[in-house]
Structure formats: C-alpha cells, structure tokens
C-alpha cells in the first residue's frame, strides 16, 4: 500500500469513526467531542503556521476571537443570518491575518513571537475598550433563535455534533491537501531551510503570508463556529491563555503532523476533565504530565508514533 493510500485510509477512517461515535457516545462525552472537534480545528489552523511553516505565534487567540466577534457582532448588531455571520467571522479573521502577517512577517524567531503576542494583546484590550458594544469581559449570549442555520437548530446536540464534525473534516482535509500541494511543500522547505528555499527562487514572503492567512482563516472559522455552537462570545477567548492553548495542543499531539492537533486537543481536554473530577489539584497533574511528555515523547504523541512505527504519517 502506498503512503498516500494509507494516509487516506487513516484520515478517512478517523472521520468515519467520529461520525459513528455520534450514535454510541453517552451525552456527556458526545458534547465534549463536539467541543474538542471545534478546538482541534483551531489547533489545525495553528499547526499550518507553526508545524509546517515553522513560525511560532503567541497571538493566535486574536484570530480565534476575530472570527468569534465578527460572527457575534454581526448577529447582535447587523441581524445577520448565521451563515452570513460565519462568513463575516471568517472575513474578519482573514483581514486581520493579512494586516498582522504583513507587519509581523518582517520579523523571525522570538521577535515574531513577541509581535504576534502584542497584536493579540492589543486586540484583547480593544475588545474591553469598546465594552459598550462587546460587553467587555462579560461578553454576550447568542440566543437560540439566532442560531438556526438553514432551518437547522445548532443548539440541538445532534446538529451541533454534525456541525462540529463538518468543520473538523473540512479543516483536516484542507491541511492534508495543503501539504500534498507544491505550496505546502514550499512551506515545509521554508521551515527546514529558509535560505535554501529562497535560493531555489521561491518568494518566501508571499508563501509565509499565505500560510498566516490560511492559518488565521481556519482559526477564525473555528472561533466563529465555536461561538455559534455554544452560544457565547466573550473576551476571555482573546486572552493570552487562549494563544498558549493551541501551541500546547499542537506540541503535545505532534507539531507538523496532520493528526497531531486533534490528538493533542483530545488528550489535554480529558487530562483536565478527568483530573479535575479526581482532585482539586488538577493543574498539578496537568503540569506533571506536560513535563513527562517533553521528557518521554519528544515529538509529541503522533510525532512519536511516526518516528517509531509509521514513518509514512503525514
């Protein structure tokens, strides 16, 4: 079997399993998985920039929040339909990604981390500053009647699960497709050796900007869908913490792997959830596990699988 067929089988298989799980999972885990799939989409967006292009952003919450607020403010003040509001969220994320990418890509390495961090912090403060419209940290609720997309009530658990699965499938396939295409190969080449890629005649800046926009766009879409599915838009999602999360998920799952973001998000979610049911010291457990993973699974969970068993994993 060729690597391509294996990979199609694996990822198609995952999507089918996720589809099937819908019918067997108990209510609680059913709801969790819907949430995890949306968050994993955010992590996939992050992975495009970090895992494949090698640019470590510490400000991705700004894209997630731009999508969420583009959607939420559209519904709240412009009475948009959910479909239009999702597009508004995506557009907000893309525009922000264009501007931030254009400026931040003049820097590399740690300076890039700081610049993205600062832009995200500025957006967070801006959301608070315009509290009259955004309701600041409290945020606002998207009521159930505003969440009916083409007659489908997204507050219903089954619909929510399918919507989350659809988003996740699209993001997964886009990232899979991207790395098989020449443009994706160039991104990996930039990650491995930017100077060599430049020497080969590729326009580094344009490719990086494209990566920022794809990454920002996916993150924004995830943010918009998150707000719509769970009915809440708030400034917390723009805070530093939510920029660190996708980095953590991706590193845990395995940077530069297609499945890593999902595995990392799933792992981290249940790590917190199970440990907080057992003990008040759930952060302690999370901390110890993070340290252990860096010590014993150096390339993240999926990265480690790839290194030891399945060298064909994309």
């Amino acid at each position: 079997m060729t690597a391509v067929r294996k990979s199609l089988l694996l990822h198609g298989g995952l999507l089918i399993v996720l589809f099937g799980l819908q019918f067997v999972l108990p209510a609680y885990h059913h709801g969790n998985l819907a949430r995890i799939m949306v968050l994993a989409s955010y992590a996939i967006g992050y992975n495009v920039l970090f895992g494949y292009t090698g640019l470590l952003s510490l400000g991705h919450a700004m894209f997630f929040a731009a999508g969420m607020y583009g959607m939420g403010l559209g519904i709240r003040f412009l009475e948009m339909s959910p479909a239009l509001a999702l597009l508004a969220g995506l557009a907000a994320g893309l525009i922000l990604a264009l501007v931030v990418g254009y400026l931040a890509l003049r820097t590399v390495g740690v300076a890039f981390m700081i610049v993205t961090l600062m832009f995200a912090q500025a957006l967070f403060l801006t959301i608070l500053y315009f509290g009259k419209w955004t309701r600041g940290d409290e945020g606002f609720v998207i009521q159930q009647p505003e969440r009916v997309l083409w007659g489908i009530d997204l507050s219903d658990p089954v619909n929510r699960y399918f919507a989350a699965l659809l988003l996740f499938a699209v993001c997964l396939l886009v990232s899979l497709w991207l790395i098989q295409r020449p443009v994706g190969r160039v991104l990996i080449a930039i990650r491995e050796n930017q100077e060599r890629a430049r020497m080969l005649g590729y326009d580094i800046f344009a490719h990086k900007l494209a990566a920022v926009m794809i990454s920002g766009g996916i993150s924004a879409l995830a943010g918009a869908v998150y707000g719509l599915l769970f009915g809440y838009v708030g400034a917390t999602f723009a805070s530093v913490q939510y920029s660190i999360f996708p980095l953590l998920w991706v590193l845990l799952g395995g940077a530069g792997t297609v499945l890593g973001p999902f595995v990392g998000t799933l792992f981290m979610f249940y790590l917190i959830d199970l440990s907080s049911a057992l003990t008040t010291a759930h952060m302690l457990i999370a901390g110890v596990v993070l340290v252990a993973v860096t010590l014993f699974a150096q390339q993240g969970i999926v990265g480690e699988l790839r290194r030891r068993f399945w060298r064909w994993l994309p």
């Binding site: 660190i244 845990l252 759930h282 302690l284 901390g287 110890v288 993070l290 340290v291 010590l295």
Partner: peptide
C-alpha cells in the same frame, strides 16, 4: 538538561513547571 534545551520542548516543559508552581502555591 534532559531534553537537551530543545527550544520548543523547553516551552512545553516550562509551561508544565508554571502549572506545577501555581498549583502548589495555591494549595
């Protein structure tokens, strides 16, 4: 030292340390 000061893994490990220190202080 055991993760060889790999830049990315150091970030995860120190985030882990951050959680541990915060929680121990809280407790």
């Amino acid at each position: 030292s055991r993760i060889d000061y790999d830049p990315e893994r150091t970030i995860v490990a120190t985030i882990g340390l951050l959680y541990i220190m915060q929680q121990v202080t809280l407790m």
